[in-house]
Every structure is written in C-alpha cells, then in structure tokens.
Simulated scan of single mutants.
Amino acid sequence: MTITSKVLDRSAKIYVAGHLGMVGSALVRRLEADGYDNIIVRTRVELDLMDQARTAAFFEEQRFDYVFLAAALTGGIHANQTYRADFIYRNLMIEANVIHAAYSTGVKNLLFLGSSCIYPRDSAQPIHEESLLTGPLEQTNEPYAIAKIAGVKLCESYNRQYGTNYLCAMPTNLYGPNDNYDLQTGHVLPALIRKAHEAKVRGDNQMTVWGSGQPMREFMYVDDLADACVYLMENDVSEGLINIGTGTDVSISELAHTVMEIVGFDGKVVFDASKPDGTPRKLLSVERLSALGWQAETSLRDGIGMAYADYLKSLDR
C-alpha cells in the first residue's frame, strides 16, 4: 500500500452514497468544509440502489470522478439477529450494484465502507487486516459480516481484473450526529445515551444494560472517520483493506458509567447477563493507517458529549 500525496480537484464530481446516514452525512460535512462544491447525493426515494437498472443508468448519466460507498443497512445485536435475511440481501445488492456501475462508467477511485465485524470472532487482538477469513465469524451478526466481506472481495476482484483503485475502509464502532437511537435497532453507545437520558428524566434509580458488561469495544466519533476517508482518497492510497479506528478500547461497563456521568444520571447499572454479549473483544490494529500519517483526534469523553447534544436535538426534530 502506498501514498502518493495527490489532493483532489475541488471541482471533482463526487458521489456520496448513503448521505442521510451517520457516515454519509459526516462525509458530506467533511467534503463541504474542505471546499468541494460538486457533491452529488440522492435519497432512497430518488434512487433505490438495490435496483440494478436504475443504479446503472444513474452512473451512466452522472459520470463520477470519485465515489464514497456508505449506503448500507446497519444495526445492533438485536437488529442483526432479527433481520438476518434483510441484512445480507440488501447490503449485497447495494454494494454489487454500485461497485459494478462505478467500474462500468470509468470510476477509477472508490472507497467502500465496511465494518470491523468482518473479522473472525476470536481474532488475535488488536485485529490486523490480514486476519480476514482466518476463522469463524461472530454468529450474532454473521449475515451482515458476510455481505461486507463480499464487498471487500468485489473491490479486490475489480482491482485485479480491471485495474481500478477501489479501497476498502473497515471502521470500528461509530457514533455521533445522525446516529440511530432506537433501542431495538441501534448500536450500543447511542442506546446507552438514550437509556441514561430517559432514566434521568423519569427519575429512575437504575438502568438495565444488555449482557455482562465485560466485552471490550473500540469507539470512534464519526467525523474522525470521515476525515480519515477523505484523507485516504485525497492522498490516492493504493488498493487494499485498511482499518480505521482509535487504537484504544473500553469495557461496556466502563462505557455505560461514562455515558451516565456525561448525561447526568446518577443511578446504578444493572447488567442483564441473559442477553448476548457478542464478540468478547474487538480492537482494530491501526498500524497501517498510522503509517500513512493519520490518527483520530476526538477523545471518547468529548465525542460522547457531542453525541448527547445531538441526541437532545433529535428530540426536537
């Protein structure tokens, strides 16, 4: 993997797929802040990326210079266990249609957003990119992980056969503006923010958290991810798989207490060990990214504070 320091033309035609989601909206914010003025977006109503013909026609009409593929169906443990068919089918269709349409219309540079769940459940920690496909996946989110692995292999295969430069970025657990705070489908951190806030408002003396509280997780503020993605694209990093994370992790128990402190809920935590923990530990190695000259800037405490402010705003939307 190499870096050639080639800043994008600010007028380059850039498509951000999934711009209304947490990651996609962060990418748009980052690009606009840097002066990019030719960013193309479409809502799901305007363009269903699961529709191959419509997706192909859209790419043929627009002829993009760069593509950020952040469109995906995502969710926490409950959603992944409940909607297993949806998670594998919808994500496979979206990534296959977009990646092939990009190749067919001459897009040389594309960044595919995957997930750290692509790695085996029992990977050595921290997880290096070479761990991919070296062991069984975590069963609670296996369909989603398989779909994302397929996206990685699609990019790798198009690069090898057609000479494209399709990079795969594997982010750690993300949180921040436009997150999903639904308790049934959201991820752990936004769910904790909502639980702590609602417990505070009700005057509860305790808050229940799924699992034992022992699993270790890494969390990254989504604007840091967007910064890393634009950095990789601007510097024309060559093809490959690259982890994007902070290099540090915390236990779910520690996370819950930090969220409670920031939200202002002074009750106690009750862990429901009858609920699944998921992977025991999931910390990404960021050696490859660090060697390219990038590192995350937002601390977990600062990020949670900004995320909580976003959640409060969402209550008025």
Rank of each mutant, 00 (worst) to 15 (best):
M93W: 09
R84L: 10
L47W: 07
Y15C: 12
V16P: 04
Y103Q: 14
E95Y: 12
I14R: 05
M50F: 00
A96D: 11
G76P: 01
L31Q: 05
D34V: 04
A71Y: 01
A101V: 09
L49W: 02
F87K: 05
N38P: 09
S104M: 15
S104W: 11
A53D: 12
H100D: 15
A70E: 02
F59A: 03
A56F: 10
I88M: 11
G21S: 05
T43C: 01
I14Y: 03
L73R: 09
Q81A: 14
V67N: 02
R63Y: 01
A71S: 10
D34F: 03
E60Y: 04
A85K: 15
E61V: 01
I99F: 03
M93F: 10
Q81P: 05
R90Y: 11
H100G: 12
G106K: 09
E32I: 01
V45W: 07
A26Q: 03
A70G: 05
Y89W: 12
S104L: 15
D48M: 01
D37N: 15
Y66P: 02
A79Y: 12
E95W: 06
T55G: 01
G106L: 08
G35T: 07
A56T: 12
M22Y: 03
Y83S: 13
F68T: 05
Y83M: 11
D51C: 05
T55V: 02
A85M: 15
V107G: 03
T105W: 03
H78Y: 13
Y103M: 13
D48W: 01
V107Q: 07
D86P: 04
V28L: 00
V67L: 04
N97I: 04
V98H: 06
L49Q: 06
A72M: 08
R42S: 14
F87R: 06
A102E: 10
G76I: 00
F68V: 03
E60K: 14
Y36L: 04
N97Y: 00
Q52H: 09
I99A: 12
D48H: 02
G24H: 00
M50T: 15
D37E: 12
E60S: 13
H100N: 15
A96P: 02
R42D: 12
R42M: 07
I99P: 02
Y66A: 08
R84M: 11
H19R: 08
L69W: 04
G75F: 00
A53L: 10
I40D: 08
A17L: 05
A85F: 15
T82D: 14
R84D: 11
K13R: 12
E60M: 08
A26F: 00
I94W: 04
L111D: 01
R44P: 01
Q52E: 13
K13D: 06
D37L: 09
N97S: 06
D86W: 09
R42A: 15
L27H: 00
A57H: 09
L69M: 11
V41T: 15
T105M: 02
A102D: 11
F59W: 01
L73M: 08
I14F: 07
L49T: 01
E32A: 08
V28F: 04
V41N: 11
I14Q: 02
Y83Q: 14
E46R: 04
A53M: 07
T43R: 12
D37Q: 13
A33G: 04
G24E: 06
D37P: 06
T105Y: 06
M22G: 06
A56C: 08
T74W: 07
L69V: 07
L69D: 09
